[in-house]
Design a protein around this nucleic acid. Structure first.
Lengths: 136, 136
DNA sequence: GTATCTGCAAAACATTTGCAATTCT
DNA sequence: AGAATTGCAAATGTTTTGCAGATAC
């Protein structure tokens, strides 16, 4: 708790109670949660927490570079705390999002023709291990 | 026109007039257009064409594997006809989307842990050559 | 003549915004 | 008190859906 407070302050984010709890949630749940998921889970514990605050907080975190916004899901945004370069795999059947690692850096293999690259997103889609094992 | 008709038929899509015109538009405009862009442009030529039909058609094309849906833009979907593996770069300033090519195939460098990969999307974001040259 | 295709209007859904109430120092 | 944070309700913008009318084979 005190650690999170200091971390947020170091990133230039005033550590309010709600912001600390959302940050704590993201640290515990690395499953690329959506706003809806965060709201459902945290609302139990903190009934006064609103969706607007979650949106506000995540947008602030994204601005400050604390989280990465994933658009692998066409419908709703997902949020990731991981900073190390990696990709994401989304199962078309169950909708779960998994991390995917690259055996080597690809940034130097890109022909970007003079554009300045700030973010790299690698999104894979298909059928996950668990779903492909099932009959249907 | 006759060529497009045959192509759509080979993909299992009944080649109606509107579908042919949308397909033709995608072939001419490789700039990853949005539904709005397609509508604005084609509506001049075909005043009876509705946005619903464009949505219906693009969803059908996506189902049949004729187009790829890009979610590089958080707000609206973009559509791409290219089948060859490549990435996309979106300029945070002007919003334009450019193609980006990889010097080698990355699919074999992925640790996908038993998941079946059907689609690979590489999205880059930053400032494009043209925008970075400008003063503002 | 029956299937399919089309298009309007309404609904659905995620996200943003305006603004007033609350909280914190 | 004053500035920042919060939360409700309404607005926004994209996409989907229901259904009636048009079109095609």
């Amino acid at each position: 708790m005190e650690e999170i407070r200091r971390f947020l302050e170091s990133k230039g984010v005033h550590p309010s109670y709600h912001r600390i709890k959302i940050m704590e949630y993201l640290m515990k749940n690395k499953s690329h949660p959506t706003v809806e998921t965060i709201y459902k889970d945290l609302h139990k514990e903190i009934p006064t927490l609103s969706k607007t605050t979650i949106y506000n907080t995540l947008n602030l975190f994204a601005e400050k570079g604390i989280v990465t916004v994933l658009t692998i899901d066409e419908r709703e945004a997902r949020y990731d705390l991981e900073t190390e370069t990696h990709g994401h795999f989304k199962c078309k059947k169950c909708g779960k999002v998994f991390n995917v690692w690259l055996s080597e850096d690809i940034t130097d293999k890109l022909t970007t023709e003079g554009h300045i690259v700030e973010e790299v997103h690698l999104y894979l889609k298909g059928i996950c291990k668990e779903c492909s094992g099932k009959k249907n």
